[in-house]
Nucleic acid binder design. Structure first.
Length: 434
DNA sequence: TCTGGGGTCCTAGGACCC
DNA sequence: TCTGGGGTCCTAGGACCC
C-alpha cells in the first residue's frame, strides 16, 4: 500500500525580530519591530508589538504615539544577518527530509515517509531552537495548502505546542475548525480574491473547500480551482527541490530624500546596478534584457506623478559591468524628465541564463579574436575579477565605479536603527567579555 | 520629514501567420 | 478588396506571496 502524501511547512516565527533576538537576548519579551529599507514600514513584529496593536506594513510615522507609549523598540532591517541565519536554518532542516525552500523563513519538507508526524515535527522544532536559536512553527497536511493552513493553526493555538497535523483531526472536528477560519487565511487568497469570494457567499475555509471545483474554475481560474482541490486534500503541487534558478534580478530602492537631477539618479542607479551585477556573478548567470525604471512619489501632495521604464535586449547575454552599466545609464537618459522629484529608481535584469552557455554573435566573436592574445583573459574579465576579489575581501564599497561617488548622497536609504552584521562582517563579530 | 523590496504565475489581448 | 477561423507567440498587467 502506498503511503499517503504528507507535507510539513516549517515557518520561523516573526523571523526578522527573532534573528535580532538571537544576537541580543535583551530584546526577549519586549515589543520589537523591524523596519523596511529606508526605515519606512514595519515588516516584522514581535508578539508583544502585535499585542500593542502594531499592524503589518504600517508606515513608522503613523505609529509614533504607539511606539512611545508602549516603549516599542524599532530596528532597521539587517538583511545580511537574516540571509545568513536563513541559510543555516535551511541547511539544518534539509537534513531531516526532502526539502523545498520556499522563502527566506519558510520551507516545505516531504513527510510522506514519516510514521509519527507530530512527534517528528516536535523533534525538528527543538533542533532548530537548539542549533540556531530560532523559534519555528510546523504545519502538517496532505497538500501544501493544508500544510500552510495547519501552520496558521499551530501559530494561533498555543495548546498545539507549535506543531499541528490537520490529519490528526476527525472529519467533524475539521469541519468545525474550518468553519471558524476566514477564507482570507487560505494561501493564495489576497484582498481582491477575498472580496469576490465573499460576494459569492464564500466566507470561511469550509465554504471554499466544499465549493464545486469545476464551477470555481468557470467563475475564477485554474489557480482558485487548485485551492479548492488542495483544501480537499488532493495535492496539486509536488515538492519542488530543484532549486530552480532565478528568472530575474531586480534591484531598486526608495531614496532617503527625493532627487531632481539626472546626475543623482545616475549615481543611485549605478549603485543598484552594481548590486544586481554582483548577484549575477554569485548566481553564475548572465542577463539578456536590461530594464530601468524611475518613479516620483505616489503620496506627494500637489505634485504630478510620473513614472516610466525602458528596456533593451542586449546583442548577447552579459554579466559584464562595462556592458550592463552603460546600457542602464542610457536607458535612464531616455526616461528622465526634468522637473520631477524622483523618489525611487531601479534596474531589472531579465532572461537569465547560465554564464557558461554564452552564445556569441558573429560580430563579437570577430572582435574578440582580434583583441585577445593567448592565455590572457579579456580586459573586462580582469577588471571584473579585481572588483569582485577586492570587494569580497574588503567590503562591498572598497572599490567602486566612477559613476558611484561617496559625497553627500541624498538618495542613500536611511537606516538609523541598524544592528551589527554579527555573522557576516569581521568588524561586527560579537566580543566575548571575560 | 517619513508609505519596502524582490519575486512568481496566470491571463487577456494584440500581432502575425496560414 | 473582401472575408473567416484558428493557431502561436509575445507582452503588459493583475494578483498574490513573503
Amino acid at each position: 500500500m502506498a503511503t499517503a502524501q504528507s507535507f510539513a511547512l516549517i515557518d520561523c516565527n516573526n523571523f526578522y525580530v527573532s534573528c535580532e533576538r538571537v544576537f541580543n537576548p535583551a530584546l526577549e519579551g519586549k515589543p520589537v519591530v523591524v523596519l523596511s529599507n529606508n526605515d519606512g514600514c514595519v515588516v516584522s513584529r514581535s508578539n508583544e508589538a502585535k499585542q500593542a496593536g502594531v499592524k503589518m506594513g504600517v508606515p513608522l510615522f503613523k505609529i509614533t504615539d504607539l511606539v512611545r507609549s508602549h516603549g516599542i523598540i524599532t530596528l532597521s532591517s539587517n538583511y545580511a544577518l537574516y540571509g545568513d541565519l536563513s541559510a543555516r536554518t535551511m541547511s539544518l532542516l534539509g537534513k531531516f527530509c526532502p526539502q523545498e525552500v520556499y522563502s527566506i523563513d519558510e520551507c516545505f519538507l516531504d513527510f510522506s515517509a514519516i510514521k509519527d508526524r507530530n512527534q517528528h515535527g516536535l523533534m525538528i522544532k527543538q533542533a532548530v531552537k537548539q542549533g540556531i536559536g530560532l523559534p519555528v512553527c510546523i504545519g502538517i497536511g496532505p497538500s501544501k495548502t493544508l500544510a500552510k493552513l495547519s501552520n496558521y493553526i499551530a501559530k494561533k493555538y498555543p495548546q498545539s505546542e507549535g506543531v499541528f497535523d490537520i490529519a490528526s483531526l476527525s472529519e467533524s472536528k475539521q469541519d468545525l475548525l474550518f468553519r471558524s477560519i476566514d477564507v482570507g487565511e487560505v494561501w493564495g487568497v489576497g484582498r481582491r480574491l477575498l472580496q469576490k469570494l465573499n460576494r459569492m457567499g464564500i466566507m470561511t475555509v469550509k465554504d471554499l473547500r466544499d465549493a464545486n471545483a469545476e464551477r470555481i474554475k468557470q467563475s475564477f481560474n485554474v489557480v482558485v480551482q487548485r485551492m479548492v482541490l488542495e483544501l480537499q486534500g488532493i495535492s496539486c503541487s509536488a515538492l519542488d527541490n530543484s532549486s530552480a534558478p532565478r528568472k530575474q534580478i531586480i534591484s531598486s530602492r526608495s531614496f532617503g530624500n527625493t532627487v531632481r537631477t539626472l546626475g543623482e539618479l545616475e549615481e543611485a542607479l549605478t549603485s543598484y546596478a552594481k548590486y544586481a551585477i554582483e548577484k549575477l556573478h554569485s548566481d553564475g548567470t548572465q542577463a539578456h534584457i536590461v530594464q530601468v525604471f524611475i518613479q516620483t512619489s505616489r503620496f506627494a501632495q500637489g505634485e504630478d506623478y510620473y513614472g516610466d521604464y525602458e528596456s533593451l535586449r542586449l546583442a548577447n547575454p552579459s554579466n559584464d559591468e562595462n556592458i550592463i552599466l552603460p546600457t542602464a545609464l542610457s536607458l535612464l537618459q531616455r526616461i528622465f524628465k526634468p522637473g520631477y522629484a524622483y523618489q525611487r529608481a531601479g534596474i531589472a535584469l531579465m532572461e537569465l541564463t547560465p554564464a557558461q552557455s554564452q552564445q556569441l554573435s558573429l560580430f563579437s566573436m570577430t572582435a574578440q579574436t582580434q583583441t585577445k592574445t593567448e592565455d590572457e583573459p579579456p580586459k573586462a574579465e580582469r577588471l571584473k575579477q579585481v572588483l569582485n576579489m577586492t570587494n569580497s575581501a574588503l567590503g562591498s564599497n572598497a572599490l567602486y565605479l566612477a559613476g558611484q561617488t561617496l559625497k553627500e548622497e541624498r538618495w542613500r536609504s536611511r537606516s538609523e536603527h541598524r544592528t551589527p552584521a554579527y555573522t557576516t562582517s569581521w568588524d561586527d563579530l560579537p566580543i566575548a567579555q571575560a
